[in-house]
Design a protein around this nucleic acid. Structure first.
Length: 817
RNA sequence: GCUCGGGUGGCGAAAUGGCAGACGCAGGGGACUUAAAAUCCCCAGGGGGCAACCCCGUCCCGGUUCGAGUCCGGGCCCGAGCACCA
């Protein structure tokens, strides 16, 4: 007698990996899809360390969904690629003394091996890397489209400079005043940089977030984007300077209602009017203060818990409401890059202005009083409530009205006199895209002394990144590419005279802001994306990724898509119809980090348990959208589950196994499970879907049931989680084509209902017993059964006041006495 | 400070306002084994009782309800994001 076949993950996984590759199982026909479904996950940066467990968790979750949808009859396109340009790759290369052009291919090879091994349903034919000239040619093309529309421009201004990475950073890449990549405190520098006019799109970027027909996104991500866009409504108000020669000063405020309480103005130190407003007596102080503010790094400038500082300019301006002359100050708590760079200070009703006024002994006037206060109630702190039922005071004809009311009224009154208007402000800034680094796509612009900046003609793309041995950045604020003379000097495309190339490269986030458009057309060399393919596959049906990109990648991608839509190149303006943010994996209750030494490297677990067990464990350890705690001890559970399924398959595929009558309770559990698992996978509730499968397996084992039809469907339901395993079982059950072309098991709704139900019985809110009755029993029957139950009856002594029944669930008696 | 999440056994976690703790891990007991591993069976929130049973229990305080882990108000703690944004 031969040993029964044991479940050997290694052999099975190798077998199916090879077969999928040979049969091109995972690659849909991109030109002829009847029910296309674009299943996207955020492409990884191919680090030297390899895929970590967080990547694998995210990719597996996305892959489970893709495989499930495929079994529901969709042609699923599940591409993968590598986001290999950028500071991260370059910094690492510098650290280990290598060249990124040598390192990246090795890292990509390693990632490819790992991604294949995890069993992702990847369409490898369409793999892409942002570092390939065939890809970044089109990244440069995207830049040119923005340039053509006037949405790419060069501007001299204060920028975030990372002294360690020696490059500028976008606002989105500065986290709490530190460089997103290396954690170094960012400095302020004044440099000429390329920007994209994303602020022109702020309103649409915000409005679409609330449009459920184009965007079904995780609420946390929507909230983060709204927060970042930072819309606020207020008014621009103009103050005339006392010196008639000076230009008027326009301030932005969200509290025009408090205009009567504006006792001074504050300008940002960089404000262009400062020089003109400064009197000779104050000039030295003002210049000293401006120099000091310019030297401050952004952290100490922006962190607000320190003492306020500032200097008087010597000038005054007229408050348009009171007619009073108010002093004009400069202070670095007012930021040049928000609003108009100038504020009207209302110390009575703004905490920062209160602090400033107190420090410099400036007048504080109350203009809003709370319900139990009047105009004379002293202010010991700024009173900032707007909708707490307060009323205006010291505001002439507006006295007695509510602040909200007054806001609109004063704005109108100012508008009628031409000294103010209603405005909307966004916190979003234009996207600074130039980087003084080597490892990225060169910005395709040529400077000519005759013609000025000239875009590189599209037919001359790509502007290839030259091989450069010394690619290290320096402090000059100029990219290393400037050191390569042969590359740097180039004829002007317009006049043919010698010109110079733009030496900055573009931000990595531009590479990833359009990659989803490229995937379906990745083999086409003559266009970035094919019109028909794009119509078929986009917008993306399901996108899964980390919330750390809520305001970076996801916002930029939306912006670029809108721009291309407006240029008539895309039919849609939102790229991702559905987005779900996955949770984070922690290890033994603590965040994974290199310094803590608790980073989980997946390879060793896959070696030990197999990819299928590892995938199933990752999906079981917690709710996918919340993440969970990775504990080595937990992996054996999912493995035991697969072993049990394997045993059932072995029994069911035995030639002596005959279709048998299935016991009714098993039948019901079977159909209930089919309903539950499909519902839960659709909602990415993988942990409970797996739990439902485990329950079914436990019932089958208790009931000694290895009926072939039923076991086949059980295997189908495990397939998204354990794809190689399921293929092997499926073959052993006698099927010849891939399980992923089989139809997801349907359930019979009538068979999901139990014949008898157990109803809880409560007396005065406490559960005192339960009765088991036929499913369709009337309330009277249930009540009679309940009253006959001794455990219930003994509490029913008093006067019966009420009986509440919830059909199929419970019956509640309310008795008095 | 503001905006999101979250707080349930020893642990990871389940629970359309309706019997809290499904499923799994670790644990205890037993079977098989010369033995161990693997596997199988049983127990398992806390407390009390010989037992049938009883009491307590989802961060805290209050409310709504016949009934609250779930809804409402207030607070505490943890995590994430934003932060002198006028």
């Amino acid at each position: 007698m031969s040993e029964p076949d044991k479940y050997l993950p290694d052999a099975i996984e190798t077998k199916w990996r090879e077969r999928w590759a040979t049969d091109r199982t995972n690659e849909p026909d991109l030109d002829h899809a009847v029910r296309p479904l674009y299943n996207l996950m955020m492409f990884p940066y191919p680090s030297a360390e390899g895929l970590h467990v967080g990547n694998l968790f995210a990719f597996t979750g996305a892959d489970v969904y893709g495989r499930f949808k495929r079994m529901q009859g969709y042609q699923v396109f599940e591409p993968i690629g590598f986001d290999a340009f950028g500071i991260h790759s370059e910094n690492y290369a510098i650290k280990v003394g290598a060249h990124p052009a040598d390192l990246i291919p090795k890292n990509i090879a390693n990632f490819t091996r790992q991604l294949t091994r995890m069993g992702g349903m990847f369409a490898w034919r369409n793999v892409l890397s942002t570092t390939e000239p065939s890809y970044y040619k089109w990244t440069q093309w995207v830049f040119l489209q923005l340039y053509k529309q006037g949405l790419a421009y060069k501007k001299n201004g204060a920028v975030n400079w990372c002294p360690s990475c020696k490059t500028v950073l976008s606002n989105e890449q500065v986290i709490g005043g530190e460089c997103e990549r290396c954690g170094t405190v960012v400095e302020q520098r004044v440099l000429e940089q390329w920007y994209f006019r994303i602020t022109d799109y702020a309103e649409r970027l915000l409005a679409n977030l609330d449009d459920p027909t184009t965007m079904d996104w995780s609420e946390t991500t929507v909230a983060a984007q709204k927060n970042w866009l930072g819309r606020s409504e207020g008014a621009d108000i103009t103050f005339r300077a006392s010196d008639a020669a000076s230009s008027p000063i326009t301030v932005y405020t969200t509290r025009p209602d408090t205009l009567f309480g504006a006792t001074f103005l504050v300008l940002a130190p960089e404000h262009p009017l400062v020089t003109a407003l400064t009197t000779n007596a104050q000039r030295m102080d003002v210049e000293a203060y401006r120099a000091q503010a310019a030297a401050k790094d952004l952290v100490s400038r922006k962190v607000g818990d320190q003492q306020k500082s500032g200097v008087f300019t010597g000038s005054t301006a007229m408050n348009p409401a009171t007619g009073a002359q108010v002093p004009i100050w400069i202070a670095d708590y007012v930021l040049m890059d928000y609003g108009t760079g100038a504020i009207m200070a209302v110390p009575g009703h703004d905490e920062r202005d209160f602090e400033f006024a107190t420090r410099f002994a400036l007048p504080i006037v109350r203009v809003v009083a709370a319900v139990d206060q009047d105009a004379g109630t002293p202010l010991t702190a700024a009173y900032t409530d707007v909708d707490a039922g307060g009323h205006m005071v010291n505001s002439r004809e507006f006295d007695g009205r509510t602040p909200l009311d007054t806001k609109a009224a004063i704005t109108e009154w100012l508008a009628s006199r031409g000294t103010g208007k209603k405005t909307v402000q966004y916190r979003l800034h234009d996207w600074c895209i130039s980087r003084q680094r080597y490892w990225g796509p060169p910005i395709p612009i040529i400077y000519c002394d005759v013609c000025g900046p000239v875009p590189v003609p599209e037919e001359q793309l790509p502007v290839e990144l030259p091989a450069l041995d010394d690619f290290r950045p320096d402090d000059s604020g100029v990219s290393p590419l400037a050191r390569h003379a042969e590359w740097y000097f180039v004829p002007c495309p317009t006049c043919g005279q010698q010109g110079r190339r733009e030496t900055d490269v573009s931000d990595t986030f531009l590479d990833s802001a359009w990659y989803f458009l490229r995937y379906p057309s990745s083999e086409l060399t003559d266009r970035p994306f094919d019109r028909d393919r794009t119509r078929t596959w986009l917008p993306v049906a399901s996108y899964i990724g980390g919330n750390e990109h809520a305001v970076l990648h996801l916002l930029y991608s939306r912006f670029i898509t809108m721009v291309l839509h407006d240029a008539g190149m895309l039919d849609f303006e939102e790229p991702f119809r559905k987005f779900r943010a996955h949770g984070l994996i922690v290890k033994d209750g603590a965040k994974m980090s290199k310094s803590r030494g608790n980073v989980v490297v997946p390879d060793q677990y896959i070696d030990k348990w197999g990819a299928d067990t590892f995938r199933t464990y990752l999906m079981f350890l917690g709710p996918f959208q919340e993440g969970g705690d990775f504990r080595d001890s937990g992996i054996s559970g999912p493995r035991r589950f697969l072993d049990k399924v394997w045993d059932l398959v072995t029994l069911a595929s035995h030639p002596d196994c005959r279709d048998a009558e299935i016991r009714r309770e098993v039948l019901i559990k079977w159909h209930q499970t089919k309903r539950r698992v499909a519902e839960e996978i659709e909602q990415l509730r993988y942990n409970t879907a797996i739990a439902a499968l485990m329950e079914l397996v436990n019932v089958l084992r208790e009931q000694n049931c290895a009926e072939r039809r039923l076991v086949s469907e059980l295997v189908q339901m495990t397939a998204p989680f354990a794809p190689h395993f399921a293929e092997e079982c499926w073959e052993r059950l006698g099927h010849s084509s891939t399980i992923f072309d089989s139809a997801w098991p349907a359930f019979d709704a009538a068979l999901t209902l139990e014949d008898t139900i157990t109803i809880a019985v409560q007396v005065n809110g406490k559960t005192r017993g339960s009765v088991t009755v036929p499913r369709d029993a009337s309330e009277a029957t249930v009540r009679a059964a309940a009253e006959a139950e001794p455990a219930v009856a003994k509490y029913l002594g008093g006067e019966l006041k009420k009986v509440i029944g919830v059909p199929g669930r419970m019956l509640s008696f309310v008795v008095g006495g």
